[in-house]
């Protein structure tokens, strides 16, 4: 068994270098395709992070009556916080609301119009963050029932539904695009490896005629495909590492507010590239040699 593996690996290595042109063509195709796949993966991750961010923004906002005491508000906040679907509850009192409003005006470079007011016109509010934007549960009902404290709950159900519908479509589209790109990559790589195998059809025929068993014909090619995949993945990861700093800066600029962890992304990408390279190389060779073995 060890002898067989050693034989296959040695033959794979020889085969790779003896047919250098085809091997390099297959490896170059592999690198290009893996880069394409990585690019789409990064885009998809960015899109996902964006959607997650948008979804996190969605919350239930209840306006608090000016007549309600702080104790009442705190009691209601505690009650809502205890609900299983709620992630957090924050009470924004009128002063904080005014400060936030002023800050937003300043951000937009507009004049602070509130300085002309003799009193704060803003109400306090309870801002509820949900664990899952799709699950409201009883939050809205609980808030609406406390009419002594709450003057109204913002009609955000529809907004939430719309946002969820859009993010759902975008997520599905992202998955479909990745799948299509993946299929294209699979098709191109399998065909390139097939070309490399076809170029050695005579060698396979000789092996068959001198009585080589299927394993002795197949495995060297499979190892060779794995070699193409590994080298392709290695070079791809090297290239990605080269562009990573500038790519990271770009992503920080674009997605500065996003909960995107570059370390996790890099790890996922490494696994994806290595797995796809190895898998495609092995699969491509296996399929290509198969057509010569079935007689």
């Amino acid at each position: 068994m060890i002898g067989f593996i050693a034989f296959s690996v040695r033959r794979a290595w020889q085969g790779f270098w003896r047919n250098a042109v085809m091997s390099f063509a297959a490896t170059a195709t592999m690198i290009l395709m893996l880069l394409l796949l990585s690019g789409f993966w990064v885009l998809q991750s960015g899109l996902n992070a964006t959607l997650q961010f948008v979804e996190q923004k969605v919350e239930v906002v209840a306006d608090v009556r000016g007549s309600a005491s702080l104790d009442q508000v705190n009691a209601l906040a505690a009650e809502v916080r205890a609900l299983p679907e709620v992630a957090s509850v924050e009470f924004v009192d009128p002063e904080a609301a005014l400060a936030r409003f002023r800050a937003r005006l300043a951000e937009q470079g507009r004049e602070d119009i509130t300085q002309y007011l003799d009193r704060n016109p803003l109400q306090g509010s309870l801002e509820v963050k949900l664990r899952d934007a799709a699950v409201f549960g009883t939050v809205v009902d609980v808030l609406r029932n406390r009419t002594d404290v709450v003057s109204g709950v913002k009609e955000i159900q529809k907004l939430v539904d719309d946002v969820l519908a859009i993010t759902g479509v975008l997520r599905t589209a992202g998955v479909i695009v990745i799948l299509l790109v993946g299929l294209t990559v699979l098709f191109i790589i399998v065909n390139t490896i097939r070309l490399a195998v076809v170029a050695r059809a005579e060698e396979i025929e000789i092996m068959r005629l001198v009585g080589a068993s299927d394993g002795f014909i197949r495995w060297p090619f499979v190892f060779e495909g794995a070699l193409v995949g590994l080298i392709g993945a290695g070079v791809t990861l090297g290239l990605l590492a080269l562009v990573a700093p500038s790519l990271g800066r770009l992503m920080f600029d674009v997605f500065t507010v996003l909960p995107l962890e570059f370390g996790t992304l890099a790890r996922d990408l490494a696994i994806l590239v290595l797995g796809a390279g190895l898998g495609l190389g092995v699969f491509g060779s296996w399929v290509s040699v198969r057509s010569y073995l079935i007689r």
């Binding site: 034989f7 003896r18 005579e202 000789i206 092996m207 005629l209 080589a212 068993s213 002795f216 014909i217």
Partner: peptide, 29 residues
């Protein structure tokens, strides 16, 4: 043993390697 009109030798292998090839691929020690 099969012999063909077009020899069917592997061009990148020497005479010795071509002959040895038949044994290598059939698990000969």
């Amino acid at each position: 043993g099969i012999v063909f009109q077009d020899y069917k030798l592997l061009p990148q292998r020497t005479v010795w390697e071509n002959v040895a090839f038949a044994l290598e691929v059939t698990a000969t020690p």
